[in-house]
């Protein structure tokens, strides 16, 4: 592919907009990793569409020099599905936060995963709502006290990795914004995976989440054992469920027909057949 030979530099993916994030936000690390990954993938910026929802991390597309859709809160998966199904020759990836993905967008996530939609979904998981200034999110720890849960939340946190596996995602990974090299590598790997690739990224919010911090994550995480077999669903689920340590790496990866492959399989004609089809239908509908 000619695009791969041009090898755009990291800089080429950076827009002139300055990120709106607080100093020390984990999302800066994710942004650098994405710039690096896109450069390694060598796809020209005009062939890329970055899609997000609403939230701090969802401002992401504005900081890229690519095409983008900054859509609606929780609705990244439907919009991505449309772009993917109708757009040709595009590289599409989706970004957003844990509230966007698992609360308001939870219903859509399940269906994008079971369709094996051909995208990479980067979830910047800080276990708190940042843009609305500090309420509990679906991944907040049980008992986490916020302004809307002053005596602590009563809901157990949702496990994004298990959810993705159960819903049918074919690539499930976990990364940490504090480990940018591994994150970049995983984004490249996910981008090359045919099908639905979800990466849950620990991306701390230093402003509103004083529980899940760069330090706390560093103490909790560990690399997957060398002998981890990502094609073994049961092993992947066991390790995804493990809370001490919280494993980083590609926990699960299988190949199955993707959404686009199946859509293509259904097509029996092309746009050029439209006039003849219409005339045939006119003949039939008498």
């Amino acid at each position: 592919m000619s695009a791969e030979n041009t090898h755009p530099a990291t800089e080429d993916y950076r827009s002139q907009e300055r990120p709106t994030w607080c100093p020390g936000c984990g999302d800066f690390g994710v942004l650098s990793a994405v710039h690096g990954a896109l450069s390694q993938l060598g796809i020209p910026p005009e062939k890329i569409v970055a899609i997000s929802g609403i939230g701090c991390s969802s401002r992401f597309p504005f900081f890229l020099s690519t095409y983008g859709i900054h859509g609606l809160h929780g609705r990244t998966m439907p919009i991505t599905t449309g772009v993917r199904a109708a757009g040709h020759g595009l590289h599409v990836f989706t970004v957003g936060g844990d509230g966007d993905a698992f609360a308001i967008g939870g219903g859509h996530l399940l269906h994008a995963a079971r369709r094996n939609l051909d995208i990479t979904y980067l979830i910047m998981d800080n276990s708190v709502y940042g843009l609305t200034k500090g309420q509990a999110s679906p991944t907040s720890a049980l008992g986490y006290a916020t302004k809307t849960s002053p005596r602590g939340t009563t809901d157990i946190p949702l496990n994004p990795l298990l959810l993705a596996m159960v819903a049918g995602a074919s690539f499930v990974g976990r990364a940490f914004s504090g480990r940018p090299k591994e994150l970049t590598r995983m984004i490249v790997e996910a981008s090359r995976h045919p099908g639905f690739a979800l990466i849950d990224i620990f991306s701390p919010c230093p402003t509103f989440n004083k529980v899940n911090t760069f330090k706390s994550y560093r103490d909790e995480v560990a690399d997957l054992p060398k002998d981890h077999d990502p094609s073994d669903l049961m092993q992947a689920m066991n390790r995804a469920a493990c809370e001490s340590p919280r494993y980083l790496g590609v926990l699960y990866r299988v190949q199955r027909p993707t959404f686009l492959q199946q859509l293509e399989h259904l097509k029996t004609g092309t746009e050029a057949d439209r006039p003849r089809l219409l005339e045939d239908l006119f003949d039939e509908m008498r």
């Binding site: 859509g71 919009i79 991505t80 449309g82 772009v83 199904a85 757009g87």
Partner: peptide, 10 residues
Amino acid sequence: GMVLGASYTG
């Protein structure tokens, strides 16, 4: 949502 995504691409 899907319709808007598709239309965005033309």
